Amino acid sequence: MHQTNPPHDCPRCPRLVAFRHDNRRAYPDFFNAPVPNWGDDRPGLMIVGLAPGLKGANRTGRPFTGDYAGDLLYATLGKFGLASGHYKQRPDDGLRLDGVLIVNAVRCVPPQNKPTPEEIRTCRDFLAESIEVHTPRAFLALGRIAHDSLLSALGEKRSAYPFAHGAEHILSSGTVLFDSYHCSRYNTNTGVLTTTMFEDVVGRAARLIAT
């Protein structure tokens, strides 16, 4: 049986388990567990993020829900017909993804938003299983860590597909990988990523899966 999501009390990464328990004591009303995939079970596009934010997805239990990254991501998906409804930073807002599944390279919130290389490797099984089960036509990697972990999950050589914002890679399987800087508040506030830059990449991915 395929396991695309970790169990609620996944024991694999000791540091993340300890942080989870700390957060359960500090924020008892938060989700505080590995955040599962969310979206369309038959996606044309799989979006791969890094990890849940402490007061975003770790609070709400839905990827990119509850912080600025979700504001930009879901508004952009809606603009290109990949989401319907209205995003309101909570999991019961009625938002629906159309042809898109969102997964994270690391499912538990890491301290300071920085998973270790070992934690990324340990969680990769769930990414690989998600790919096998959902068989998307294209991928959108948000940031270098998501890009690298995705390539490893696919058995691709990282050196053959270097990360760059706006890059469009045709993988050995014929699947297309789009790269974008992560849609975090830090990247947008510093001008590393603009709304126009992000919309360009998402728009190209949307057009590809529509053909």
Results as ranks from 00 to 15, higher is better:
residue 128 A to M: 03
residue 205 A to F: 15
residue 19 F to G: 02
residue 50 L to M: 12
residue 1 M to Q: 06
residue 72 L to E: 01
residue 94 G to K: 00
residue 211 T to Y: 14
residue 210 A to L: 11
residue 88 K to W: 11
residue 201 V to I: 13
residue 145 I to N: 10
residue 70 G to N: 11
residue 154 L to Y: 14
residue 165 H to E: 07
residue 65 T to Q: 12
residue 8 H to S: 04
residue 151 L to P: 04
residue 134 H to I: 04
residue 45 L to P: 04
residue 193 L to E: 00
residue 125 D to H: 01
residue 27 Y to I: 15
residue 56 G to W: 15
residue 48 V to D: 06
residue 117 P to R: 07
residue 34 P to D: 07
residue 165 H to G: 01
residue 50 L to H: 14
residue 3 Q to N: 08
residue 72 L to G: 03
residue 76 T to M: 01
residue 52 P to K: 15
residue 187 N to M: 02
residue 12 R to V: 15
residue 177 L to A: 08
residue 120 I to Y: 11
residue 38 W to N: 05
residue 37 N to K: 05
residue 2 H to P: 08
residue 211 T to Q: 15
residue 136 P to M: 00
residue 57 A to Q: 01
residue 134 H to K: 00
residue 132 E to C: 01
residue 189 N to A: 07
residue 125 D to I: 12
residue 210 A to E: 15
residue 53 G to V: 09
residue 126 F to R: 01
residue 184 S to A: 02
residue 8 H to F: 14
residue 157 K to T: 13
residue 76 T to A: 00
residue 86 H to R: 00
residue 98 D to V: 11
residue 174 G to C: 01
residue 183 C to L: 02
residue 83 A to K: 10
residue 208 L to Q: 15
residue 75 A to E: 03
residue 143 G to I: 04
residue 185 R to L: 03
residue 119 E to V: 10
residue 50 L to D: 08
residue 143 G to R: 15
residue 156 E to C: 01
residue 145 I to P: 03
residue 51 A to I: 09
residue 103 V to T: 13
residue 138 A to D: 12
residue 97 L to V: 13
residue 117 P to V: 13
residue 145 I to W: 05
residue 93 D to Y: 10
residue 133 V to I: 03
residue 42 R to M: 02
residue 28 P to G: 07
residue 68 Y to K: 09
residue 98 D to T: 10
residue 121 R to V: 06
residue 77 L to G: 06
residue 3 Q to H: 00
residue 48 V to H: 14
residue 101 L to Y: 12
residue 77 L to E: 05
residue 41 D to N: 07
residue 56 G to Q: 12
